[in-house]
């Protein structure tokens, strides 16, 4: 609904929004500015919002102390594979649950949804046993397979199902008359129209994989195999103290893809979730 506000009201609203923005923007601002401060300046009192001295060597040291480029690549390719795999599986499963009549489809969907209720902490030990048996410990396979067939994929299937349910039946019927079989209808009609939902699934899945922490620390043991969230905990001195400025430099670089994804695709994310009846 569009409303006409007076200039004074608009100013007041924008002022209020700026105040409300502070708790969200401040941590990011603090992370970025602290990443270029000498460590002694980070804890100076009163704190400085703008660095008094710039120390850009922190960014170089991130790569000296850890195989950070390798870890960055690990996170990137794992997130990309998980995103692609989840998109394929969730779009097909979501379409099947929404459009194909088969016995007990609703009951099966409810069982699938129950997967969301089980916390990953509950399943991590059995999963460790399974992957140990398969010789996949200290490999990236668990970090790829668990999300693709686990809770993130269930949520993605739910998002896709809700989208496909809302797709007009007549489009599929027109496609059947036009000579398309089930898979071609999915591939050439339903999937291209599901771009907003796929966008939401892609962002959600990418971020989930990118930020995954529990699974890497359980399944990975060598620094060469680490992903970024795990690598961030490794910037400590000889006594175990955190090297804050270097850690924050690494955190800033880690956050860049996340920010980029949100800036580029936030509209699709919101549109996609709108189809599920969930708020974005």
């Amino acid at each position: 609904m569009k409303t006409d506000l007076s200039p004074r009201m608009k100013t007041a609203l924008y002022g209020l929004m700026c105040v409300l923005l502070i708790p969200f923007v401040f941590p990011t601002w603090w992370m970025i500015t602290s990443s270029v401060k000498p460590i002694s300046d980070i804890f100076a009192f009163p704190p400085d919002l703008w660095p008094r001295r710039f120390d850009l060597t922190t960014y170089a040291r991130v790569f000296e102390l850890q195989p950070f480029a390798r870890q960055y690549w690990n996170s990137a390719y794992i997130a990309a594979l998980v995103t692609a795999g989840t998109m394929v599986i969730s779009s097909m499963a979501g379409y099947a649950f929404a459009r194909i009549k088969f016995p007990f489809s609703n009951a099966i969907f409810m069982v699938v949804l129950l997967g969301l209720l089980i916390p990953s902490e509950v399943t991590i030990v059995p999963l460790f046993q399974i992957f140990l048996g398969w010789g996949m410990i200290n490999t990236h396979w668990p970090l790829i397979l668990v999300p693709i067939f686990g809770a993130p994929s269930v949520f993605a299937t739910f998002v896709m199902r809700q989208f496909f349910i809302a797709l007009p039946n007549e489009l599929e019927e027109a496609a059947r008359v036009d000579g398309l079989g089930r898979f071609k209808i999915f591939w050439t009609i339903a999937l291209p129209l599901a771009k907003p939902a796929l966008g939401a699934v892609a962002i959600f899945t990418f971020l989930h994989s990118w930020n995954l922490y529990l699974e890497p620390i359980v399944f990975l043991s060598s620094t060469q195999m680490f992903t970024l969230p795990q690598a961030l905990t490794q910037f400590t001195d000889a006594y175990g103290g955190a090297m804050w400025n270097i850690q924050l430099a690494a955190a800033t670089m880690t956050a860049i893809p996340v920010l980029l994804v949100f800036i580029v695709a936030q509209k699709q994310f919101v549109e996609g979730l709108a189809h599920t009846g969930l708020k974005g």
């Binding site: 007009p168 007549e170 489009l171 019927e173 027109a174 496609a175 008359v177 009609i189």
Partner: peptide, 9 residues
């Protein structure tokens, strides 16, 4: 077939 809601892609 021509549908009520046109069913254009």
């Amino acid at each position: 077939m021509v549908f009520q809601n046109y069913a254009l892609y």
